[in-house]
Amino acid sequence: MKDLNLRIGTFRYDTTEALFDGSVTVDGVGGTTMSTAATLPEIFERMTCGDDVDVSEFGMTFLLRALDQGMPFVAIPVFPARVFRHSCVFVNTGSGITEPADLVGKTIGEFGIYGQDSGVWAKGILADEYGFRPERNRWVIGGLEHPAPPFTFTGHPHPDDLDITTAPEGRTLSAMLDDGEIDALFTANVPQPFLNGSPNITRLFTDYEPVERDYYRRTGNFPIMHTVIARRELLESRPGLARAIYTAFCAAKESGAERYRKFRRLYQTPVMLPWVNALIEKNDRLFGEDWWPYGTSANRTALETFLRYHHEQGLSARRWTVEEIVAPELLDT
């Protein structure tokens, strides 16, 4: 594999920083070129439509849509983005929505696509826990802070009985929520008017942290948004490459975790957040030593839950299995 200069595209997280600064490398290859982008959809689109990356961070829903279209992608069981999603549901304060049951009959926005990773988890959790049914709602797809059409680099499957439209030209979902043109928003990013203190927007679960911690205690799910993918032919033509990539991402994650451990002795003074040590101690009690596990075994429950949600929501032609989406040589991780 010494002839291979491996090109990897991912966001610059604390769990991938060591890959960018070169302190962690992929063993056995001739070199590694790291790249990122201003937004995550740009990273996904480069992998789908271009030829400038070999390995890429990729949204779980985009992977399953690609597989349904016959694209030759396979997952490395590395999960650089995972977020609890009770907190991603925002509502207009004049909509009459104060609890999940109030979502029935309302108009809900989603960024870029019906069934973005955050939306798949939000709908699935609300369905499991509160009986939410997406077909009872109207859905509007658009840009969050800038007007944008639905994504063009992926398919847009959805059940025929859903009422889905695009946002009016020149309008953003954040502004529509603030103005009451939509009642709720399922979003991967916090809408800017909320951050600016708009009195018109609040979260459905205002005190979301204890709700999300309770969800984790009961289900064991730390929701996975993104994985890392490669083309099957690349991995098949170079035995050992999949494991080398996996090992490098694990080492980069461990490097980020070690920084937290080191800074804990310094009361996290390199971070401008009060009481960070208290949060770390709280998370240690809930998650154990590894808050952010990689590998197939430790993530099987979360993966199977997402695969179920994706199929139940009519986004997959069939229910995929973990064994079908993960590189075969990494099923033992």
Rank of each mutant, 00 (worst) to 15 (best):
L4F: 10
R12C: 00
R12A: 00
D14I: 08
A18F: 05
D21R: 13
V26Y: 07
D27T: 07
G30F: 07
M34E: 12
E42L: 11
E45K: 15
R46C: 00
G50Y: 11
D51N: 14
V53H: 12
D54I: 04
D54C: 09
G59H: 13
F62C: 00
L63Y: 02
L63T: 04
D68V: 05
G70D: 12
F73I: 01
V78M: 11
F79V: 07
R82W: 10
R82N: 14
V83E: 14
F84R: 05
N92F: 06
T98E: 05
P100S: 09
K106N: 03
I108G: 07
E110V: 12
G112D: 08
Y114E: 00
V120K: 03
W121G: 00
K123E: 11
Y130S: 11
F132P: 02
I141K: 05
G143P: 12
H146A: 09
H146V: 13
P150R: 15
P150T: 14
F153M: 02
F153Y: 15
H156Y: 08
H158M: 06
L162I: 06
T166L: 00
D178M: 05
D183C: 08
N189D: 13
V190R: 13
V190G: 04
P193E: 00
F194W: 14
D207L: 03
E212N: 11
R217H: 09
R218T: 10
N221C: 09
I224A: 00
H226K: 05
V228Y: 04
L235K: 11
R238D: 09
G240N: 11
Y246I: 04
Y246T: 05
C250L: 13
C250M: 11
A251T: 14
V271M: 05
L273S: 04
W275L: 04
F287V: 04
E304D: 15
E304I: 03
T305L: 10
T305E: 02
Y309K: 08
S316A: 14
A317P: 01
V322R: 03
L331A: 10
D332T: 11
